[in-house]
Computed example of a mutant assay.
Amino acid sequence: MPLPTLEHLLEKELLWERQEDASDLVRWWMDGIQLYKNLLRLDDQNERYRVQLANLLLKAGGDLKMRQHNFREATRLFRQLVRQIPDHALAYYRLGFLALYEQDWRRSITYFSSALTAKPANRAHQLSEEQRAKAYGYQAKGYQKISLALFEKAKQVGNETRDPATADAIDSFLLQTERELFSYEEVKPYIMVSRNQVLHLNKDEVIEKQAERGPSDIRLDLLGEKFLLVLPSDERIELTEQLARLLRYLMEQGKPVTSQMIREAVFPDSKSESIVRRTISRLRETIRYSCRMDDLIHTTPTGYSFHWPADFQIFYRNDDLFLTDILDN
């Protein structure tokens, strides 16, 4: 079957851009991904097609497995972009975040450094002041992670040393080094939000907190390959990333929020006027279909609110905090 012509695909692009308000957002993203893949087959040097495809892959997200696949594909596209345009600071910046998400600390440092030293003539390829500050900050985070890994190797050498005098000398050196390098608490990788507190946790503490859940509490678990709403009965409702993000926002607010507030916080890049109403409807339908609960999301005179008489917990990875920065432009 022959490929469609460029003219035909550009007409489809115009039609696709108008359809965001009338279709499911995830389906719209996936249609866009296929469209820009086809456009790149016809013009593989087109910067706009490559950036659009990479951005859609990042937005589409999905569950953890799909997100990892999409991020790898986006990384490949941004690498092609910097080969094509070596001074594209914004592409290096996004590659830095993608490497950081994969915990490739050395590569993230290299990409952020390239973003900061690039001097693009095209203003659209330049970093804003906020992006420059974040690039320096996340470079520091990468160096911190590398320092911790190297320090663990140094401790391992000390533990394996058989000579007591040498072991004492190593212990003394490491104690002094630890005070100089790590005079602050290492950021824990997980976060738990409840009605009255926000806690940073390690893996064992997450397990303890989940076991402490009250008999009437509900839990939104964003740590695994699937996004789950866990009910007091231990029934699990699987949510899409979009629905989980919306529910998390409503739960964290603890008060009624307007549709405009939801749109700005959860769907900042959407042009659809009905995105909030349609996604709220899908969230209610998903919960109602799974457990026949109709009262988790209340409609208020100005918007919506999350309603649950007992406590709740939300668990998510600390690295989720910088995922939005990947698309910051």
Rank of each mutant, 00 (worst) to 15 (best):
I85N: 11
V276M: 07
N122P: 03
E102I: 04
F322V: 04
L150T: 11
H125W: 08
P4N: 01
W29A: 04
Q242S: 03
R106C: 04
L98C: 13
T302E: 10
H125I: 06
I280M: 09
P189F: 07
S305D: 11
D168R: 13
L327S: 13
K153W: 10
L199N: 13
L148D: 07
E130V: 10
Q45Y: 01
G96Q: 03
L58T: 02
L14N: 05
V187F: 05
K188L: 14
N38D: 14
I170F: 13
R236G: 09
Y190G: 06
L98M: 15
P164D: 10
L148C: 01
N122A: 06
L247D: 09
E185Q: 14
V51L: 03
S216N: 13
R245D: 09
R76G: 00
P268Q: 03
M192Y: 05
P189C: 02
F227C: 10
T240V: 01
L98R: 01
R219Q: 10
T110W: 13
P301A: 01
A99E: 11
R106K: 15
S172I: 08
I237P: 13
R236N: 12
L243V: 12
P4F: 02
S147N: 00
L283T: 00
R288N: 11
H69I: 12
Q253D: 07
I275D: 02
L3D: 15
L247M: 08
I280N: 04
V187D: 07
Y93E: 02
D168A: 12
R18P: 00
H298W: 14
S305P: 01
Y184G: 05
A169K: 09
